[in-house]
């Protein structure tokens, strides 16, 4: 099997897995299962990055999503009245409209993909080490302002989230 055929096969496999687990997120009644299905969907997306030879981003995606979805599962158990989904509670509204909007978004994107002229594909990709070095130079060179802004944004979000989440002074817990 040639390299390109194997790449196509793995892209289809992991892409189908990501889409399937994405559907499972909203089909299961159990919130914990939803969080785990989203973790698998994001991991499949990370695997697609690896197939596309973006090793650093692939590993980053898998590591970040593993921790993020674990936190999400904990929050699910904390906040839900029925995290296990044993009561099969209905937790959706405007289902028909949502299906139409999702379908329209998919159809529109697919139309753009099929009608767009993408030009010839690049065959060669820099080696993993060369990519990481070039990305480092990009982040600390031309894109430094954007990169630093992202860091500042995360810091601001951390402070804002903590301030929103802590109990107001004088309010008793419980």
């Amino acid at each position: 099997m040639s390299g390109s055929a194997a790449e196509t096969l793995f892209l289809v496999f992991f892409g189908a897995a990501a889409v399937w687990f994405g559907i499972v997120v909203f089909r299961t009644h159990s919130m914990v299962r939803s969080a785990i299905a989203l973790l698998f969907a994001q991991t499949a997306v990370g695997a697609m990055f690896l197939v596309m030879q973006a090793e650093f981003l692939g590993v980053l995606q898998i590591m970040m999503m593993a921790s993020e979805m674990s936190i999400m599962a904990i929050f699910m158990v904390m906040f839900m009245m029925d995290p296990g989904g044993l009561g099969a509670m209905e937790m959706t509204h405007q289902k028909r409209l949502s299906l139409k909007a999702g379908g329209a978004g998919f159809a529109f994107a697919l139309g753009v993909i099929l009608l767009g002229g993408w030009g010839p594909a690049a065959q060669e990709v820099p080696a993993a080490a060369a990519q990481t070095a070039a990305l480092g130079r990009e982040l600390l060179g031309r894109s430094m302002f954007v990169f630093e802004s992202a860091g500042l944004t995360i810091l601001t979000a951390m402070i804002a989230a903590t301030m929103v989440a802590i109990a107001p002074q004088g309010e008793k817990e419980g």
Partner: peptide, 21 residues
């Protein structure tokens, strides 16, 4: 595949009643 994920995401964001979902 990304378009499919996008469509599923739109459906989820519009249809769910729970903030975390």
């Amino acid at each position: 595949m990304a378009a499919a994920l996008f469509g599923i995401g739109i459906y989820g964001a519009l249809s769910q009643t729970n903030l975390v979902m």
